[in-house]
């Protein structure tokens, strides 16, 4: 089984660490993957309005391409994951969307949501297994107190994403344990960082980021991990450097001994 690796735009520029360490770790873990051919931007944000079709098409193209490969689309960025998984659900269950998208794209074979959209963390949990991962760790991050930052996009809406318990998730904590560090559970780990309002209402993003960081600090976290470049931006830039934030793949690569 080969995973179709979907980097997304930001991972090629501002979030290179998320991408590079992600690939290195996959190699170290012996996961068979290849960057998906001719990928396009996912759209960056899921168009919630029911009458939006065109804005979802680029995601459908990617999903259909993955279907032609092994049907397993591997995502890293939380936002890409959220968009691709939700558009995929529309292609499965929304007749109107499926009809219009297929009519427009005129693919050789109609796309009906056949692809599995799998987040990198889900791959670690469900395909590699955290126990197996633990065995492959060569440089455990012993003693490091890390808070998992989930944000919104990995968890909600749970009816579609089915990623983890939306109010009491544990996947990133289990990941942190697997790489030898100590997870710190704090109250605001599934609250919004401020997201896209950061551009027009910077003060809101600052408030939201501070809320997350303070909660993590109070609980004793020394560092946060995230899977999302937008969360990374808000927590670091709008969080005014109050807390170290890293992509989870960077810590993974470090623990696996493949970070140079």
């Amino acid at each position: 089984m080969k995973f179709s690796y979907y980097p997304g735009c930001t991972l090629k520029t501002k979030a290179k660490e998320l991408d590079i360490y992600g690939r290195k770790s996959l190699e170290a873990l012996g996961v068979d993957f290849e960057e998906i051919k001719e990928w396009q931007c996912c759209g960056a944000v899921y168009p919630v309005a029911k009458d939006e079709v065109a804005t979802k098409l680029s995601a459908v193209r990617t999903l259909a391409q993955a279907k032609e490969e092994d049907g397993k689309l591997l995502t890293l960025c939380s936002a890409c994951h959220n968009v691709l998984k939700r558009v995929n659900e529309d292609m499965k269950s929304d007749d109107n969307m499926r009809l219009k998208a297929n009519n427009y794209l005129a693919l050789e074979e109609a796309y009906n949501g056949e692809t599995d959209v799998i987040h990198y963390l889900e791959l670690l949990r469900d395909y590699v297994g955290f126990d197996k991962l633990k065995e492959k760790v060569v440089k455990p991050l012993t003693g490091k107190k890390i808070g998992a930052y989930y944000g919104c996009l990995l968890l909600r809406p749970n009816s579609v994403l089915a990623f983890d318990n939306p109010e009491n998730p544990s996947i990133i904590e289990n990941f942190i344990k697997a790489i030898g560090a100590t997870p710190v559970v704090y109250a605001m780990r599934n609250e919004c960082c401020g997201a896209y309002v950061s551009v027009t209402h910077k003060e809101i993003a600052e408030k939201k980021s501070a809320n997350v960081i303070n909660s993590a600090k109070d609980a004793g976290a020394e560092m946060l991990v995230t899977a999302c470049p937008l969360c990374m931006y808000n927590l670091t830039e709008n969080g005014k450097g109050a807390m170290e934030v890293k992509y989870f793949t960077e810590l993974l690569a470090e623990a696996l001994g493949v970070k140079e």
């Binding site: 501002k14 979030a15 960056a44 944000v45 551009v199 937008l230 931006y233």
Partner: peptide, 19 residues
């Protein structure tokens, strides 16, 4: 004018789509 050089594309694109 309103962005800094650290802003990820993802943020710009999503902001544009929202506004």
């Amino acid at each position: 004018e309103i962005v800094d050089d650290k802003i990820p594309q993802q943020l710009l694109v999503s902001m544009f789509r929202k506004y």
